[in-house]
Design a protein around this nucleic acid. Structure first.
Lengths: 203, 203
DNA sequence: TAGATTGTTAATCGATTAACAATC
DNA sequence: TAGATTGTTAATCGATTAACAATC
């Protein structure tokens, strides 16, 4: 109960806003400013902070740099994290080039694919054959994977990741995958997300 | 209360599974099968169905084709929906080529971009100049948009969409956007999603 | 019938919101 | 001081889970 999934997600969003504030040299911020930005209420903001023992000053709000430092610590943003992507198709490439991963401590260490024509050892990050995944992951101590392959290959890729020592994954294949309890998987089903937009606009 | 966001999302997932079942000619399905597939409980499945007046047969479960037909009706899957994408970068192109949109009644009618070099009227869907968005959307009666542009252009694109008559959007720009109350916006922040995977694997 | 399954009502759980005391 | 803000405790709300009746 103490730490809910949703408040963690909001902490990341607050952090985003704080970074923007810091860039324009803002020193203080009120819970109400934070709330407005991410589209919630100031009560929710203070509640979230309360859960994680983040405190400000009555009347003066929160110090941007101080709060940011605490959030970085709390969210483990001080360590660099290596990530591998399996599937060098459109989604894989989009993520490879996604701005802002790197400065957030997320390093796309390599892409992997089944298709030989896509291999490119010289690229940064390199595009490697799927056979190299196991060795790469274990020798580079990678803990995070992204699955961007077609449905029929997804479970196989996940199993390979797990056996290689990966502990959490983001999955774009629109099919539920089986994983052990201690493995964290974040399913992103873009089709369902789009379908739900359609549904809500029709109501 | 009657219709919760989460149960709607699950209805789409049940539907996915039912389509797969239909393809392998399965006739009947139990709530427990549905639950296993999407990773929930049979109680939840029956509760969801109960909310939407979907019923089966005691002992015999649900008829796949019948249930599918009812879900299609409920979720408005019988009408084709046109969608426009603004931003012909990696994410835009990934979505353009995303398998399965079309057969789900989602038609990517056109992409729009600010960059002249990306224009391609001959492509299917065509890649058009952003100046054409307003006219295209209103004359084709498009109700759904996808925002796949950098942060600094996102709000401007959304405003343009709204003025052209779009009613709901999926937004990939990692920044909160302002929209009127009757406009539905689904924010997909891939960086935050990935960061949360990192967070949970570290615990 | 006995066993298995649906479907609804009630109970629980968790997250959000409200109320308000503390204090700068 | 008065006004504005934080931070915690209590109340509400919504979603999930449990219990159980109905019935094939």
């Amino acid at each position: 109960m103490k730490t809910s999934k949703q408040s963690i997600l909001r902490l990341f969003q607050y952090r985003d806003f704080l970074i923007r504030l810091k860039n324009i040299n803002t020193v203080n911020v009120f819970s109400d400013n934070l709330a407005k930005d991410i589209g919630t209420t100031s009560i929710q903001v203070r509640k979230d902070f309360s859960l994680f023992r983040l405190s400000g000053n009555k009347k003066a709000g929160y110090k941007v740099s101080n709060l940011l430092k605490q959030l970085d610590e709390l969210l483990g943003k001080n360590k660099k994290q290596k990530v591998v992507i399996v599937g060098a198709g459109n989604i894989g490439k989009a993520l490879m080039q996604y701005d802002g991963f790197y400065k957030e401590g997320l390093e796309i260490a390599a892409l992997f694919d089944y298709d030989r024509r896509k291999y490119n050892h010289k690229n940064n990050p390199p595009v490697l054959p799927i056979e190299d995944l196991f060795k790469f992951v274990s020798s580079n101590n990678v803990k995070i994977g992204i699955i961007a392959v077609p449905c029929k290959a997804a479970q196989q890729v996940l199993d390979l990741m797990i056996s290689a020592g990966i502990k959490g994954a983001m999955n774009f294949a629109p099919i539920p995958l089986k994983s052990p309890k201690n493995f964290y998987i974040n399913n992103i089903n873009l089709r369902v997300e789009l379908e739900s937009v359609v549904y809500y606009t029709q109501m």
